[in-house]
Design a protein around this nucleic acid. Structure first.
Lengths: 235, 235
DNA sequence: CTCTTGATGATACGGTCGTACCATCAAAAT
DNA sequence: ATTTTGATGGTACGACCGTATCATCAAGAG
């Protein structure tokens, strides 16, 4: 209503106005924060530290993120993108055609801290989790929608596996899916806490998946192929 | 060697010297920190805030805990005491004689945030967990010995249940115990994160325990009794 | 009764935090 | 050519942090 900027629609007219790419700069700064959060925690991620990590001045961090809350939320959005991108890539790397078991397995192993990248992602996620616990106003809803979607995704493929006779049809799929996700998250916490290493956690997760999917005759072979697939993920 | 204080053993000679009970004051201050950590996070637990919460002056906090690290570690020790005390009381409240299932069930439900006290404990534990992730020097070893002991405790009773025919003898007890603990921790995280409430998490945990323990004939009755026991815990 | 000493109060110091303000410079608009 | 404006640098401000220092008061020792 006010201004009517769209009267003369120039081709150069963009949301990012003139000189530099704002989205790019924001991403550069936001990922600098994520890098600090993954190694030294969010407490160490002051605006000055983020500026130094990103190689820009403090003023620039303020320029692209007017306040610290905005910076934290922006970086959290980037973290969510990285996490879901990893899950997708991880599933795709398990080969075609995707079986229900490989989809469940790929999803859960993607969020288990077994390599450097997943450790970085889960560590950063844990840092944000603690921050949200202390300051619930930051959460908005990013904290519940994504795990809920993951659970529905897992439950759907568990049901498919039940229909294919690969999983006990007496199983309650949503409850089992929630349990698998909680199991994986709990295992991840134990890895980050130093209680065991990523391989041990992966072995425990694989064991439980074998018990779930090894319900039809010939389950031994299925367990073996799953275990070799687990080996492929580590290198 | 130097001083030889034990030469004249006076009856009043104590580690807490003259006037006030140092252990009591330390506990009072340490639990004030835990109270702040459970509600506003450890970031909000500055020495001044702890002093105000404990109703003492800043100087006193410094007097009984020479440095902030000492305060954090001391309060962490109190938290560990509270946690293990709750686990023991929770198991004892499940009635005698303790069955393997009630021991496993009581242990896991004790650390699941279903009521106000367990929520407080797990929230505080989560705050410390994030702090240790960012500052591993604080951990010493408190982070790994306690979960390891819990896992061994659970695995032992799973083996007993196997010997009694209540659990599938083909189950690998240590792996299943680690899985149960990770499942419970993961469920707890989802409760604290607001994804579901304590009752929903308890239902998921009970479902998995029923699948584990419901292996002998007459499993339906066992599942029913377990579910009623779960109901008893909530009030 | 004096003196030592444990326990406590008040306050100061250097540092870091998030934020705000002012100046500059170059590209775009006119 | 001049003006405007997006983008950036430098720096200051007030608040809070952990820690240190100085002072005081009361109880037990001699």
């Amino acid at each position: 209503m006010i201004g009517r900027r769209d009267r003369t629609a120039r081709p150069e007219r963009r949301a990012v106005p003139k000189r530099v790419d704002h989205d790019l700069r924001r991403r550069q700064i936001g990922e600098a924060l994520l890098r600090i959060a993954s190694t030294r925690g969010l407490q160490a991620a002051s605006m000055r530290e983020v500026a130094a990590e990103a190689g820009v001045s403090l003023r620039l961090v303020q320029y692209y993120f007017h306040t610290k809350t905005e910076l934290l939320l922006g970086a959290l959005a980037y973290l969510g993108e990285q996490l879901s991108a990893r899950v997708e890539a991880h599933i795709r790397a398990l080969g075609l055609p995707p079986t229900p078991r490989s989809l469940v397995y790929g999803t859960l192993t993607a969020i288990l801290p077994t390599d450097a990248e997943s450790r970085r992602l889960t560590r950063t996620y844990a840092a944000y989790y603690a921050l949200v616990l202390a300051e619930p106003a930051l959460a908005a809803d990013h904290g519940t929608t994504y795990p809920d979607a993951l659970e529905r995704f897992l439950a759907g493929h568990l049901r498919t596996a039940q229909a294919a006779g690969q999983v006990d049809p007496g199983l309650d799929a949503p409850t089992a899916a929630a349990g698998l996700l909680a199991l994986t998250n709990g295992l991840g916490s134990s890895v980050l806490g130093g209680q065991r290493d990523g391989d041990a956690a992966l072995a425990i997760l694989t064991y439980h998946l074998d018990r779930l999917f090894g319900h039809q005759p010939g389950s031994g072979e299925a367990a073996d192929s799953a275990r070799s697939a687990a080996g492929d993920l580590t290198h």
